[in-house]
């Protein structure tokens, strides 16, 4: 039970990171982006490639950080992957979503995002193969926090949680302390009023994709550290991430953070009462419950 709770919090940390970008895009561009989870895969694979590359160029960086299986090389690779995934998100918007947005009505965007998800997921499969990859082949030993009941935590998991919380805190500072953050929130609330107050809409949209993409990259790597890197990870993550945004309220960054943890914890706690085969259905059950009792989520506002 306590073990499930701990695992849930850890799952929640990468779900939250994924949900933050998704909720921003959904709020500002007003469409459910079904390809967002593929940005997580993209980030995870980019980190895999650059981890190998950095290790090959500077073998000295292949040393591990303390008890973690994470190496300095992977840390560099994560930073590179954040930038690349953010830029890919901007590029995908420019090439596809922007054109569909200008041509069709809002909902065509949802179709386009599904199409993009299929393309990204399967191209990754074609390039990297369908079998799972790991960042480190070494077995990571878990720390025993307690023997009765048995509670195990891997050092990597602790790192993932701390790093995710740190990133969210940085984002919180940006949103609550900088005028750039105010501009993001202003565009989310009222795009035309933001424009007449001097905010460049196109540039803000680009910033949202950059932030969303780079957080998705981190989320993808963290998923990979906790489980494995596999082309279909986007398919398995898309519903939990959407559930996190709905639980938190579409458009609310803080809601997405809390929603991510709730979805993560619920999924792991459900293992206590349900066979593990049902885990993929838990996010949907949460969506139904939220829609029944609080349709606009914990922090969301009604908006047409």
């Amino acid at each position: 039970m306590i073990q499930n709770l701990i695992d849930g919090v850890l799952t929640g940390s990468y779900l939250s990171l994924g949900a933050i970008g998704l909720t921003l895009v959904m709020h500002i561009l007003r469409f459910a982006n079904f390809s967002h989870a593929e940005l997580l895969s993209l980030g995870a694979y980019a980190a895999l490639v650059f981890d190998a590359l950095v290790t090959a160029l500077a073998p000295v960086l292949a040393t591990k950080l303390g008890p973690l299986s994470l190496t300095y090389a992977l840390l560099f690779a994560i930073l590179i992957s954040m930038v690349l995934t953010g830029l890919s998100a901007v590029l995908i918007d420019r090439l596809v979503f922007k054109r569909v947005r200008e041509k069709g009505w809002e909902l065509s965007m949802v179709f386009a995002s599904f199409g993009m998800a299929l393309i990204i997921r399967n191209v990754i499969g074609l390039i990297f193969g369908l079998s799972p990859e790991l960042y480190s082949k070494d077995i990571a030993f878990a720390m025993i926090l307690s023997r009765d009941p048995l509670i195990l935590v891997k050092p990597d998991q602790v790192f993932v949680l701390v790093a995710a919380l740190a990133l969210m805190f940085v984002l919180h500072l940006i949103l609550s302390r900088t005028t750039f953050g105010y501009a993001l929130r202003a565009v989310a609330e009222n795009p035309s009023l933001a424009q007449v107050n001097g905010v460049n809409l196109a540039r803000t949209v680009m910033a949202v994709w950059l932030i969303g993409g780079s957080l998705a990259a981190v989320a993808g790597v963290f998923y990979g550290l906790s489980h494995q890197v596999i082309p279909v990870m986007g398919r398995d993550l898309v519903l939990p991430i959407f559930a996190a945004t709905i639980v938190g309220g579409i458009g609310s960054v803080y809601g997405a953070v809390l929603g991510g943890f709730i979805v993560g914890i619920a999924g792991n706690l459900a293992l206590v009462v349900l066979p593990s085969g049902y885990t993929p259905s838990i996010p949907f059950m949460l969506i139904l419950i939220v829609l029944m009792i609080r349709p606009h989520g914990l922090f969301g506002e009604a908006r047409a």
Partner: peptide, 14 residues
């Protein structure tokens, strides 16, 4: 005005 921002944040944005 931006309801979700504070008064001061509204002014700083402008």
């Amino acid at each position: 005005i931006f309801r979700s921002l504070t008064i001061r944040q509204n002014l700083d944005l402008a």
